[in-house]
Nucleic acid binder design. Structure first.
Length: 270
DNA sequence: TTCCAGGCGTATC
DNA sequence: GATACGCATGGA
């Protein structure tokens, strides 16, 4: 059963949510701007909105520091996908032995509803890269702009002006993505309206965006839960457990399954 | 020093 | 369509 309830306590919001784990949701490779500032607390951003969130001692209870009810409902309720019932997803996946184990171990994982442009540009940076360095490059970008820049903010950027990022060969891909959005050739609303397959084709018009980066953007930035990003880790899962493809029970929620499997295999279950 | 990281573009068959 | 290789950077 899904329990999502919240109330105002002083300057904070207290959330009751049985299916949320901060490590599994904020530090699982789907978002790169969250930092664990103490064992139970994360600090980070969605667009220009800053948040400190704590996992309280009581099980399934969280504190959103200095957040009004209005802000919570307008921003964070959607960002954390709090209207979704992940216990239903886990129940569906439990038909498969490996997915049952992975989802059981990572049942506090939620697919964040992130900004389309941020996920596209962030996952361009992610290619052939490791998570700590992805975070480092993105933090340099945000420090430079005092926030995560929009494509419009970046429309004058070149490979040379981006050299401070130390993004290597990815800089030219970022420039190409900026160009395609700032000219209006691609729009977030346009992509959102398409089927997952058609949306993937649109995103892959960007130089440096292949199937994997496109699927990450579709899953994390457009909340298309049937997108299934296959990185090196998920490819290992597939070859070991699913050489003939994903089981039926993942239909429509392949992306959520992927996120459980990604964490499962990375933690050493092989 | 060599290998690897939430891959992709290009050349070649 | 599939396979091989180079690619910037930095940590292990």
């Amino acid at each position: 059963m899904n329990i999502t309830d919240f109330f105002v306590q002083g300057d904070d919001i207290i959330l009751h949510q049985s299916e949320l784990d901060l490590d599994q949701t904020l530090d699982c490779g789907q978002a790169f701007r969250w930092e664990r500032i103490s064992p139970d607390t994360y600090h980070g951003y969605y667009l220009n909105n800053e948040l400190t969130i704590s996992d309280l001692p009581e099980k399934g209870v969280f504190r959103f520091h200095n957040v009004t009810e209005e802000q919570f409902l307008a921003i964070w309720f959607d960002y954390f996908d709090l209207s979704a019932d992940y216990s239903e997803v886990i129940k569906a996946l439990s038909e498969d032995e490996t997915l049952s184990a992975a989802a059981g171990q990572y049942s506090g994982t939620r697919i964040l509803r992130q900004d389309p442009w941020e996920t596209i540009s962030s996952f361009i940076i992610s290619q052939n890269n490791n998570i700590p360095r992805i975070k480092l490059i993105i933090s340099r970008l945000c420090e430079h702009y005092s926030a995560y820049p929009t494509f419009d903010d970046m429309k004058a950027e070149t490979v040379e002006t981006l050299s401070y990022l130390r993004a290597g060969f990815r800089a030219k891909y970022i420039v190409d993505a900026v160009l395609r959005f700032s000219t209006g050739e691609l729009t977030a609303d346009g992509i959102k309206a398409l089927t997952t397959d058609a949306a993937r084709d649109e995103l892959m018009k960007i130089k440096g965006v292949g199937p994997k980066v496109a699927d990450c953007a579709l899953l994390f930035g457009f909340h298309k839960l049937d997108a299934f990003p296959k990185d090196v880790w998920v490819k290992r899962v597939m070859s070991q457990y699913y050489p003939d493809g994903l089981p039926e029970c993942t239909k429509g929620i392949e992306g959520v399954a992927q996120q459980y499997l990604f964490q499962y295999i990375r933690s050493g279950n092989r």
